[in-house]
Design a protein around this nucleic acid. Structure first.
Lengths: 216, 216, 216, 216
DNA sequence: AATGAATGAGGGTTCATTCAT
DNA sequence: AATGAATGAACCCTCATTCAT
């Protein structure tokens, strides 16, 4: 976690720093994100980074947490209703929010995608698999919550949870492929993706509908 | 592509080199794979690498092609029959072969997984998205080939192709999560995963079955 | 020397500061003692150090003086009697007190040992040699004071003074080697060495006795 | 130990490197010896150092061994005769050779003195005490070898061994103090100390004579 | 064809000191 | 009197690539 030094920083300065750090770690994986480069962009002394954070890993963990929290804000309301009503509607809503988040916050989106793919780093462990395992476990629980009420009793919750996990992790990619967008480009430009609300909704709907019979 | 010097190498030497290179790039992403480390393990001169290949990128591309070809050998027979008979059976067979390949060749499997996740490297481009795009396009074609014959006419081939793509890219992960295996560990040890043929078959079957209703 | 700000400090605070500084400089030589680390342990602002002292060297000199004074308290009574009675008894008593001081104040002892070995630092000069020169000169004088009365007239006061100096500088080391103690460990733990008064006395006695014939 | 790279270096280049390294580590203790500074003086790339040695510690150990071997060449003949003839003559000869070595090789001398004072470095351990312990143990054995033949039976070999150890470690210091020399200065200038052979001999003789009665 | 020494920019990190508050 | 953020040079070390042999 950040040192107090960082928390006591003038809000604007802290924001600048955070932004530059997110930028660097959004466009590079952990090992290749360069503190040297980051401070050059920021125009501050390299030593300052170590006034704010213990080390590179500490900074990285802060950014992950920040991005995760930010994303949670988008999805919290939906997640809370995990057991209510219709599962498909719920999941569609969840995906919708998740996709919107990435489109509106390309930097945070890219960062989280990077995190979800860290496999080879001894220092931070295999986050990719850990992430998937946890997400799949959560979705399995939700599926089993709905199964008695509205889902087919023959449904294989474990396997289906995995399919839904994959969908979740890959949705933004799919959208970008279909719409010929490059999220990294938007992260690079620090701009949100301009999207057509109806298009996004339709995309998610179609995506989930394609799986619907499997959930029937 | 390799220089002629590499192709003229004594087969055994070429094999040793290739193995060591695969090892290094299987356990590290492109940027973090170290030629320095590779030649140390191999016990050859660092300069030799540049007699064989133009540069690091050239070597990487060679390894990708090699791994892809090796995997193709496993799946070619299945892929050729893309239009025949039952789609589901076909796809199940395809996944089965793909999973077996990863389990029997952890090093190649890890390498290809790494490749499928290179997003942030200006030097080699966003391979992750390129890969997905191509795979999805191929599967869409196959789906559309079967649709008039055996698949539901209302099926959204584009979206479904994406789901199947995700399944393909994530199947080995799912297997490793369920069986609590670490593929990187096997790559590191240079040993194949010992698996129970029936278990693998069942796993793939369940995985596809969970999606079956969506395929009509 | 300390600035007035330091002298005006609340006694307890001044004591805390002094203790932490001694700790740092006891366990590290001048260059490697870290003010950054010291203030972290102390929990005060880094800037405060520079309110109290001109710079690192200034602080170091203060600590040396303090440790030296503290040691002097232990030995003053003995030193004062430099010309009286039996030289050997006197010197034995001096060594005894000196050794006790190190055992009872491992931090101060370590610091002074460090000081007595600073040779390579342009900033603070070759303290090692300066120290030895002064000590040897003092002992030479004392020897010459006793020589007409109780020491052999053929005795080479200059050379003998050097032997006694070496003994003085190395006595604690010898004790630690024989008793298998690590003084730095006790400094680290901020605890005195628990010693057997009789053992210490015997050790010093044997040590001096071994030289006695030379003083005959 | 050095990598093969270093051993294969052109002799002149290897000599230049070794000289510069000795220079740096003779005038600075381990932690403060700077590889950055060393290569600047040498006019080679920093990376080269790591072609030759694993790391700083590896280089340091090489230099210690080299200096120790060089010193051994000076003293080997004497040491071999450890049990023969008169102990005092033998020890005088040993000290004589040791002192000559330091005077003729100020850089190596300074380095070994530095080594004999490393107390505070976790990375390399407390070499100071280790050195003393070993030297004292050796001298004790030699004393006990002579005791039945030519030394007083009442002599305390353990304590006396320590006095002789101290003498050995401090002899050069004593000489420098008496003759008002600064060995570091000669190391810095890369020149041998110009000494008067007779003076050195007399100095050692007087020094040992002062202890002679204690050896009875 | 093979070598392996040389390069130099880049990596993360630590440090004593300053100065506006 | 006290703070603590800012500095920037220095630290050790790694890297892909080159090139004379």
């Amino acid at each position: 976690m950040p040192k107090s030094t960082f928390l006591n920083l003038r809000p604007e300065k802290r924001a600048d720093f955070t932004d530059a750090a997110l930028f660097e770690f959004a466009l590079n994986d952990y090992q290749n994100a360069s503190i040297t480069n980051m401070v050059k962009v920021l125009g501050i002394a390299k030593g300052s980074v170590y006034q704010y954070f213990e080390n590179k890993k500490d900074l990285y963990e802060f950014l992950i947490e920040l991005a995760a929290e930010e994303k949670l804000k988008y999805t919290k309301k939906v997640i809370k209703k995990a057991g209510d009503g219709d599962f498909i509607k719920w999941y569609r809503k969840l995906l919708h929010q998740s996709l919107l988040f990435d489109l509106e916050n390309p930097m945070l989106g890219c960062l989280l995608i990077n995190v979800s793919q860290e496999r080879n780093n001894a220092e931070i462990g295999n986050l990719a698999l850990t992430n998937k395992r946890e997400t799949a476990a959560f979705l399995k629980k939700v599926l089993e919550l709905h199964q008695p009420k509205s889902l087919s009793p023959s449904l294989d919750s474990s396997k289906l949870a995995f399919h839904l996990t994959q969908l979740g992790f890959g949705l933004t990619d799919a959208f970008c492929i279909e719409k010929e967008l490059d999220l990294r480009h938007f992260a690079l430009e620090r701009t949100a993706v301009e999207y057509d609300e109806a298009e996004v909704k339709a995309f998610v709907k179609d995506m989930v509908n394609a799986l619907k019979p499997a959930l029937g």
